[in-house]
């Protein structure tokens, strides 16, 4: 089967991620869960998440090995270590479809199913603001270094030189962002609106869901 470049329909991606996590947690103690997770890894790679799957491996392998090793050392039970590995794997794999989803596409899909505008706007900001926030944190820390403010581990310095400037910056950004949203004609009322690009589930999404469900059924039955 040739890997598809088309990304998954956002709502399918989110729901499948939640399904993988919950299924992984419930069946973590079984060996079938490990096979199911391996299958999910391959399945996700085939449905446009190959890069995210490969990017996840360098983080998962050492963290997984450490947690599995610690569990085995503490409990002496191979089953508990396997369950720990499965849980971590389910968590990492469940995150991939969501991480791979563009926030804008997600907002469009939610708008199509008539989610309240306040909720979609908030979700869009919360999802796309995370990288920006990291940049702001870095800038505040650089400013601290430039001023010679001292260590961030000191609570007083942390409060005065890090927390207050960061919150101040967040307040300013939120005011500018709100103004920008308003000037683009966004309203929270029941005003009619159109969606720039309508997101629709493709046949590949149905195939993806079917494969996932078949894998889960096989893990339970076999």
């Amino acid at each position: 089967m040739k890997p598809t470049r088309r990304k998954l329909y956002p709502l399918v991606a989110v729901l499948s991620g939640v399904f993988v996590i919950v299924f992984g947690l419930v069946t973590a103690k079984t060996l079938a869960c490990t096979f199911f997770l391996c299958g999910v890894f391959v399945w996700l790679s085939l449905f446009g998440c190959l890069k995210s799957c490969l990017r996840m491996l360098p983080g998962f392998i050492p963290a997984g090995a450490a947690f599995v090793g610690l569990t085995y050392l503490l409990s002496g039970d191979a089953g508990a270590a396997l369950a720990m590995g499965n849980r971590l794997g389910a968590l990492c794999l469940g995150m991939i479809p969501g991480v791979n989803t563009d926030p804008v596409r997600m907002t469009r899909s939610l708008s199509r199913v008539h989610t309240p505008r306040a909720v979609t706007l908030g979700m869009l900001i919360a999802l796309s603001f995370v990288p920006m926030l990291r940049g702001e944190i870095r800038r505040v820390r650089e400013a601290m270094r430039t001023r010679g403010a001292g260590s961030v581990l000191n609570p007083k310095i942390f409060y005065r030189a890090f927390l207050i400037p960061l919150v101040m910056r967040l307040v300013n950004i939120s005011d500018t962002l709100a103004l920008s949203v308003e000037t683009r004609g966004f309203t929270l009322g029941k005003a009619p609106y159109t969606i720039y690009k309508k997101e629709k589930p493709a046949p590949s999404d149905f195939l993806y869901v079917l494969g996932l469900l078949a894998g889960a059924a096989a893990a339970i039955l076999l």
Binding site: A63, F67, L88, L91, A118, L121, G122, M123, L124, I125, A126, L127, F129, V130, L133, R134, I137, L170, V171, I173, S174, D175, L177, A178, L179, V181, E182, F186, T187, L188
Partner: peptide
């Protein structure tokens, strides 16, 4: 709610998310 309220709450939620990334481990 006004738009600025929603925006501020969303930014605070994003801050909670960034600082909460240790949760899975």
């Amino acid at each position: 709610y006004k738009i600025k309220d929603i925006v501020f709450l969303a930014i605070m939620a994003a801050a909670m998310l960034v600082t909460g990334c240790v949760m899975p481990f």
